[in-house]
Computed example of a mutant assay.
Amino acid sequence: MNVPKLLLHRLFPNARYSLWVDAKLELVVDPIQILERFLWRKNASFAISRHYRRFDVFVEAEANKAAGKYDNASIDFQIDFYKKEGLTPYSAAKLPITSDVPEGCVIVREHIPITNLFTCLWFNEVDRFTSRDQISFSTVRDKIRLKTNYTINMFLDCERRNFVIQGYHRDLLEHWSPPPPPSVISNVHPSPPIVMVDGSLTKTSTNTSTSRPTKMVPTKRGKDRRWRRHRKIVIGSKNASTSNNFV
């Protein structure tokens, strides 16, 4: 896993720049914009994002042990070895270095001798101890800084989220089952029962706020519904014709 991540200059010797993005991420921005923002604008040859929460190697080691990322005894052995070589907890005395723990999922670099040397030494530490490259990053960086004026651009994790989005590994997606189809819920309710009250048909109300049944009043039939035509008599002269007396 760390061979293509840290030794890209060996795999692509003619490449001038490279951008490493973990498989769990998806690049959504033009790579040229990333080079301009994190390398050319900062006059840097190597850029990597800081860890979003931790900036001390000792805290990072304990977090890896708690999460079961690697064998605890191997992590303790690596930390003890680095302590004997001068590793100290992060403090304000290390400024302008802002963090000792990178995120590691995105690496932007220019393929020049100094960056190639840094990644080769970093790979040696990963191969010698644990595969948790966040633990060995600061040790390699500080050793090079003691002999050269080499600096690394460690940008904020929120800046990284501007050009990559979180994805999921393929093996995780294969184990996920598709969501079940939405169930069809029937909203059909039975009609209220019809009961006999005092010889009349009544229907119970479906409204829960009323407790008494509503009595159905029969409609009137017969003469009351029959349309009646009334003659209108117009008073006129006696000599008027009969047809003029009716309208």
Rank of each mutant, 00 (worst) to 15 (best):
residue 173 L to E: 07
residue 31 P to V: 06
residue 28 V to L: 06
residue 55 F to I: 01
residue 141 R to P: 10
residue 140 V to M: 07
residue 8 L to K: 11
residue 230 H to R: 13
residue 152 I to Y: 09
residue 115 T to W: 00
residue 159 E to C: 10
residue 65 K to P: 10
residue 16 R to G: 08
residue 28 V to E: 01
residue 15 A to L: 08
residue 52 Y to D: 02
residue 123 F to M: 12
residue 105 C to H: 04
residue 47 A to F: 01
residue 87 L to G: 12
residue 8 L to W: 14
residue 185 I to S: 10
residue 23 A to V: 08
residue 36 E to D: 00
residue 42 K to F: 02
residue 56 D to H: 12
residue 44 A to W: 01
residue 96 P to R: 02
residue 77 F to P: 07
residue 20 W to T: 01
residue 92 A to V: 08
residue 103 E to I: 00
residue 119 T to W: 06
residue 180 P to A: 09
residue 2 N to Y: 02
residue 57 V to E: 15
residue 88 T to E: 15
residue 54 R to Q: 03
residue 224 D to M: 10
residue 118 F to E: 00
residue 192 P to M: 12
residue 176 W to R: 05
residue 12 F to P: 03
residue 13 P to H: 10
residue 18 S to Y: 08
residue 125 E to C: 15
residue 116 N to L: 04
residue 105 C to T: 10
residue 222 G to P: 04
residue 133 D to T: 14
residue 30 D to H: 15
residue 98 T to E: 04
residue 55 F to Q: 11
residue 69 K to S: 10
residue 168 Y to S: 13
residue 90 Y to Q: 07
residue 213 P to Q: 10
residue 146 L to F: 12
residue 31 P to C: 13
residue 219 T to H: 05
residue 82 Y to W: 04
residue 104 G to A: 15
residue 149 N to Y: 04
residue 84 K to S: 05
residue 134 Q to R: 06
residue 7 L to I: 07
residue 27 L to K: 00
residue 183 S to N: 08
residue 31 P to Q: 00
residue 118 F to L: 02
residue 47 A to H: 06
residue 52 Y to E: 13
residue 124 N to M: 14
residue 159 E to M: 08
residue 86 G to W: 14
residue 105 C to W: 10
residue 127 D to T: 02
residue 129 F to P: 05
residue 165 I to W: 07
residue 40 W to G: 00
residue 216 M to V: 10
residue 164 V to D: 02
residue 232 K to L: 02
residue 148 T to L: 05
residue 181 P to C: 03
residue 230 H to E: 09
residue 1 M to V: 01
residue 75 I to W: 05
residue 22 D to K: 02
residue 112 I to K: 07
residue 99 S to I: 11
residue 133 D to M: 08
residue 17 Y to S: 01
residue 170 R to Q: 15
residue 143 K to S: 15
residue 236 G to S: 07
residue 225 R to D: 11
residue 168 Y to P: 10
residue 144 I to G: 13
residue 171 D to R: 08
residue 95 L to C: 12
residue 136 S to T: 06
residue 55 F to D: 08
residue 29 V to I: 02
residue 59 V to H: 14
residue 78 Q to W: 09
residue 171 D to P: 07
residue 62 E to S: 06
residue 34 I to S: 09
residue 68 G to A: 00
residue 196 M to G: 05
residue 135 I to F: 11
residue 158 C to Y: 06
residue 210 T to W: 00
residue 230 H to W: 04
residue 47 A to Q: 15
residue 19 L to E: 00
residue 222 G to H: 13
residue 184 V to C: 04
residue 215 K to H: 14
residue 88 T to V: 15
residue 180 P to Q: 01
residue 113 P to V: 02
residue 219 T to W: 06
residue 11 L to M: 05
residue 44 A to L: 01
residue 211 S to L: 13
